[in-house]
Write a protein that binds this DNA or RNA. Structure first.
Lengths: 415, 415
DNA sequence: CAACTTTTTTTCGGACGTCGAAAAAAATAA
DNA sequence: TTATTTTTTTCGACGTCCGAAAAAAAGTTG
């Protein structure tokens, strides 16, 4: 059953709608905000003057004239923009041995970034919290300025967002690593946790909501295989946060040996070690090395395939087939608008595409395929951290700054 | 981006919350409604007096005393209940050769039901609309009373709810059969369309929202294999309505021949014809007969397996394995709270359970399995139609009767 | 250059929905 | 009959949105 609604909720939602409009469409005059949000001019004035008083948005008076030199009559529009100095957000990406950190202001501009390292092999489940806090503290103190108003974490592997832990990840030898509680306690601000691949989906959605909206999936093909999922314009994480863990969904019962010890996982055909194992002609039951395959090695593999080397071509062919079956299963289950392939191995998508589409054809009745768009986009290392920043900012817009009287709270806590 | 909110929306939502509370918890006094909905007594009085004036709810003054004989002091609570005569809903289930119809009043009481037949083999894509309308008209006229305020359709196969058509279904030899538009036009009321298995999920959710809530999946194992999906307490149908078509998701690449012509579909291991083919020792590439396997034959198969007959046991074993892999893939993709197995073959779940759980163990790392509950519930033929009624009533509560001034609209259209 | 036109922004008053508090209603207990 | 208890209704205050009108800030025109 849905919840009751009250007056406060209206204002909260409309404040958040205005903030989101400014974030999505950039600096705008009040009249534009009215058109975008469907709010009346009177209401826009009321809300924006509150937001200005609270220091969340500000007028911008630079070269607005230049744009309007075309002899426009009437009172000139005065543009409003998010006030970068209103708050800062801290985005953190956890992977093997490294903690990547980025600090951004409320306007989305990067204030600074850095990488800290730790020892994935020896860290303990309750010891990592302190390491993380120390790294973040060092980073923030080094940059100076106000502390972050929210922290968003993205981790490889399986996260449990209700528990605030990383359940199982290549980044840790141990399981159930506490991350949210220590950070939230140390900084006294909200802390979000998500799977790294979901943050790719978030990044795409925030940059182009029309294209990457509704229900769509991101397949991340790299060291492993992950999936990020948007359902009805919202990040979908399932009951515990472990949804979209397609890498260890089974492709062929009893098939290739996977790093996780199971047989036939999608990752055992598409992960970097799997491609390499196949290309080298090793038995598919050969246990994968525990060490990550270097990026260089993968690039060489791609080059070899482009040069027409048989083993490499076979590997990408098998990977493409697995990918196509994965497409089919995702489509049959979720009926998405779009599937995006990215990750380090996405550069090799052209080598896999034919096999993937053939497998899709083989695996799925045409009527079910519907009008799903499948596209590969070149991999950018920064996409995950950018998505994490975007998620943190969105959380500020909708959860924190939507609260009426945020300004007075701020003053109160400053005393 | 979220939508703006305004005052009307508050009232709409709170009206709908009150109606839903009455539907879920039965007749209640205003003070109970206040507790359940979190609305103040003043607001409850205001909303309920509107709803009474509009004829949507009514006081009930029967044996309330008996319950309160325990010498309760104070003003006695006066119970309110949904007024059955406020409206009627028509639920329709389309399957091979038959149109099942049920008419219920606004309180959820069944007014009447009937089955009409048509010829699935010869009906045309644009000819079926008239057949459907005629059947519904005949049914309603036969019962007398006011016409339905909404019609909800459930169909076997793949529906396209944005187009309002049945894209592909065993119930029709042709594709893209128009159903929503003809019905909506003929009756001048909203018409909803859904896959039949989704209506099982809806029925479960409406009877026990605590148990069947959040994100959960229903696997329907019967003539074919279907899935119904709730995501975050809402029916999930994907972009076109074709989500959860897991029956034709691939289980084993290049595996058994399916009725759809593809190889290795889940249904080619779990559908009734698949079980039968396996039990009879036929080759797995034997084309399935086009005729549906009778319910009787399946019951005999179950009996044979219970009697320890090898072929039958093998068939259920293979089916169980396929089912377990399906569990694993659904869990990896959606991380649901619960998976429910039902359908005619669900009576055979005990015969398949061991193999299914073994396959699940084999296919999914334990950390991903999380705390998903898997349960089989005995199949009731009526579940689909009951879910369809529930969906129609819920649509009235939230979409139609939530509109303020519904009463005046009604009067206006009566003139 | 003063009056007019155009466009944006603000102000004002009305309407409406929720809420808390107080009053009213309807029963039992003393 | 009066007091007590519980439910329901009434009343007034408050907050929010909106439409209309006014104000502001430009360009245009004679």
């Amino acid at each position: 059953m849905t919840q009751k609604a009250d007056r406060d909720q209206i204002r909260r939602q409309n404040r958040s709608v205005v903030l989101q409009a400014l974030r999505r469409k950039g600096p705008q005059a009040r009249i534009d905000l009215g058109r975008v949000t469907q709010l009346s001019p009177a209401t826009v004035t009321s809300i924006t003057s509150d937001l200005i008083a609270e220091g969340l948005i500000a007028g911008v008076d630079d070269d607005a004239q230049r744009e309007r030199e075309k002899g426009a009559r009437g009172r000139p529009r005065s543009l409003l923009t998010l006030d970068g100095s209103a708050a800062r957000v801290l985005a953190v990406k956890l992977s093997v041995n490294t903690i990547e950190m980025a600090l951004a202001d409320y306007g989305g501009r990067l204030v600074g970034r850095d990488v800290a390292s730790f020892d994935s092999a020896t860290v303990t489940a309750d010891g990592f919290g302190q390491i993380l806090i120390d790294s973040l503290r060092g980073f923030i103190d080094g940059l100076g300025g106000p502390p972050p108003a929210i922290v968003a974490l993205a981790s490889q592997g399986v996260v449990d967002d209700s528990a605030g832990t990383v359940a199982w990840s290549p980044a840790f030898a141990v399981r159930h690593v506490e991350v949210v509680a220590p950070v939230a306690r140390a900084f006294g601000v909200p802390c979000l946790l998500s799977n790294d691949t979901n943050m790719i989906a978030e990044a795409l959605h925030r940059t182009d909501p029309a294209r990457y909206g509704g229900t769509f999936a991101v397949l991340f093909v790299d060291y492993g295989v992950g999936m990020g999922l948007f359902v009805n314009n919202r990040l979908f994480v399932g009951e515990t946060g472990a949804a979209a863990e397609i890498g260890h969904a089974n492709h062929i019962p009893g098939g290739s040996l996977c790093r996780c010890g199971r047989r036939g996982c999608l990752e055992a055909y598409l992960g970097d070690y799997a491609l390499l194992r196949h290309a080298r002609g090793l038995d598919l039951q050969t246990p994968p090395s525990r060490l990550p395959v270097g990026r260089e090695t993968i690039r060489e593999l791609i080059a070899a395939a482009r040069a027409g080397e048989d083993g490499a071509l076979d590997a990408f062919n098998a990977g493409g087939t697995a990918l196509g079956y994965a497409f089919a299963r995702v489509i049959a289950t979720l009926d998405p608008r779009r599937i995006v392939v990215t990750g380090a191995a996405a550069d090799a998508y052209p080598l896999m595409e034919a096999a993937a589409l053939a497998a899709l054809e083989e695996a799925l009745v045409t009527d079910l395929r519907g009008s799903v768009d499948i596209e590969a986009i070149p991999w950018e290392e920064d996409l995950i951290l950018r998505g994490t920043v975007a998620r943190a900012l969105h959380a500020l817009d909708t959860e924190v700054f939507s609260d009426t009287g945020y300004g007075s709270q701020k003053e109160a806590s400053a005393n």
